[in-house]
């Protein structure tokens, strides 16, 4: 997982729960990293340990935490450092989701070790689309839902998001049906 994600998680926790909570979470997770370098590759288990400790310490379900984190990522963290890339990613929700894969393709080419996720859009309509999410990492579907919700907020659109396929239940990949109200 790239450092950017861990750093965003840190920023998310510090913003909503305070610096002291983050310190406790790091201690609990046994993570002794002073500063996550954005484009450095860190073992995935660091991120999972941090999320696990945060859920336990803050008494939040992992799905809820990841969903809020996804929203925070789009609305605040993505702006920091790569704001222009996000701004230029598209002028509509559909365009951004379509271009999301191109962005990850670029990143994946530059940093092969990072194994970024991949997205495919099908049934793209004015009032919605179907988003296919492919990742080697399990358990992050909730974060994708938060991410789509955050994008909806950015474009001022109310969304209805339904996960129609779940890799956790044996599906090939996660699929989300997104409807724009």
């Amino acid at each position: 997982m790239y450092g950017l994600v861990n750093r965003a998680l840190q920023e998310f926790i510090c913003t909503h729960h305070g610096d002291a909570s983050w310190q406790s979470i790091k201690n609990m997770a046994g993570v002794d990293v002073e500063l996550f370098v954005c484009m450095e590759s860190y073992p995935d288990e660091i991120t999972y340990r941090l999320v696990g400790a945060a859920c336990e310490l803050l008494n939040i379900e992992p799905a809820a935490l990841l969903r809020n984190f996804g929203r925070h990522w789009v609305l605040f963290t993505g702006q920091e450092g790569y704001g222009s890339l996000f701004d230029g990613a598209g002028s509509s929700l559909q365009e951004v989701l379509i271009n999301l894969d191109h962005l990850h393709l670029r990143v994946g080419l530059m940093y092969p070790a990072l194994k970024p996720p991949s997205f495919r859009c099908t049934d793209v309509r004015d009032d919605g689309l179907t988003l296919h999410y492919f990742s080697e990492r399990p358990g992050l579907a909730s974060m994708v839902i938060g991410l789509i919700e955050g994008l909806g907020e950015r474009f001022g659109k109310a969304l209805a998001i339904r996960q129609t396929e779940d890799r956790a239940s044996g599906a090939d990949h996660d699929i989300f049906d997104i409807r724009i109200a």
């Binding site: 500063l35 370098v37 484009m39 450092g81 790569y82 222009s84 890339l85 670029r106 990143v107 530059m110």
Partner: peptide
């Protein structure tokens, strides 16, 4: 586009450093 992304990343990494 790729070069700009690369440059941006390098700059961000430098800031991190």
């Amino acid at each position: 586009g790729d070069l700009l992304l690369q440059l941006k990343t390098n700059r961000n990494t430098l800031a991190d450093t």
